[in-house]
Design a protein around this nucleic acid. Structure first.
Lengths: 210, 210
DNA sequence: CTATGTGAATTTATTCACAGCA
DNA sequence: TGCTGTGAATAAATTCACATAG
């Protein structure tokens, strides 16, 4: 039985993609059942937390048996790809952008970069199967391709300008790699990935914990 | 007065680098005082949380005035660069690695990539002022350069092999960009940055919250 | 008056511990 | 018997609200 309409705690939501990949890997390696204790081992998360997390979606497991790996994989695929139609654009095809495009090609993932933009005319065309347009066409293409989320990988000083141009599109989410805090309309959710921040956090932990 | 020996909650620790950069930016833009309400506005964190976070380090602010920006900047520099000697190596100089090296050059950051490694002989030498060595020299150089943390940006299938080779070095932290879960000796702390995970999380939030 | 610093209240997340199903 | 799913306990983080210092 699968629950509906339960509000999932944010902390749980953050772990879902982690679970998903873990289950995908198990599946690839041919494992067909898994217990919360094994997941715990693999992901370093307390087994009770894992059972609780999974239980938000109903009884996914069987008592005395554990969880069926393939079932989990298809369940999570459902869950995370729920918003089927929505696709993603990359803005900025520099080293980082190119790395992201390559990352992208992995497997059967549905959460994929669909189109990209840059200002450099050498970049326009196709990179690894992804169409790259000039930034001039940003609004036009975002709308025609029904893009709902963008990845920002442009130099810091241009990031805010680009964000300002997203206001009249359907974009509702930004994954920002540029090392600046962005001001976005409040309908748009911004997530940040900042190498410097991550590095500093790691170093701080190294000296202060464990 | 600055407190000592307080244990800082993990949630606070994660925000420290965010604060730091925010204060640096304020300082650059010439602002000399700031209130928790303004920080709250800029970072989207409740102002009480901010006051609480800062208060773990003692009374950094003045009642009725707020916080002195330059003082904050130098305090945080201290705090986050405490482990002065320690430096960072990059393993894997592909697109992502190169992007990270470029990122690196920003400003006066002390948390910097010092050396890098790759297997491709075309990469060996110098890239943007960073010495790039062949992976064969990994252990030797990590030790001689006293590296305590590494950034992994190698293809997924090689990541674990590299980690296994870190056992006999001084490395205590890994920032892993390769989309695999790593098994590391328990003295080594591993932080993960995984584009797929971040993207899925963003998409999940978009469809399920707010 | 203003904006901090912090007890106290509240909310959110984790973990314990066990009843109960396969 | 072996493991889930979940109440109840605990811990961690956030937020309220205000006395207090400048």
């Amino acid at each position: 039985m699968v629950k509906k309409n339960t509000v999932i705690p944010k902390a749980t939501a953050k772990r879902l993609p982690l679970y998903y990949r873990f289950f995908q890997n198990l599946s690839l390696s041919g494992k067909e059942r898994v217990s919360s204790a094994e997941i715990s081992e693999g992901l370093n998360i307390d087994s009770a937390t894992i059972r609780r997390d999974l239980s938000y979606f109903g009884a996914l497991g069987k008592k005395g048996y554990g969880y069926n790996v393939n079932y989990l994989v298809s369940f999570f695929a459902q869950l995370l790809h729920k918003n089927e139609g929505s696709s993603i654009a990359l803005i900025g095809v520099g080293n980082l952008g190119t790395a992201l495009i390559n990352y992208n090609l992995r497997k059967d993932e549905k959460t994929k970069i669909k189109i990209a933009f840059d200002v450099d005319s050498n970049k326009i065309g196709k990179i690894n199967d992804i169409d790259v347009y000039h930034l001039d066409q940003l609004e036009e293409k975002l709308i025609s391709e029904k893009i709902e989320a963008v990845i920002m990988a442009v130099p810091a000083q241009f990031a805010q300008d680009v964000v300002d141009r997203l206001a009249n599109t359907n974009v509702r989410g930004i994954l920002n790699f540029s090392p600046v805090r962005l001001t976005a309309p409040k309908e748009i959710r911004v997530h940040y990935i900042d190498l410097t921040v991550e590095l500093q956090a790691l170093m701080y932990y190294l000296t202060n914990y464990k």
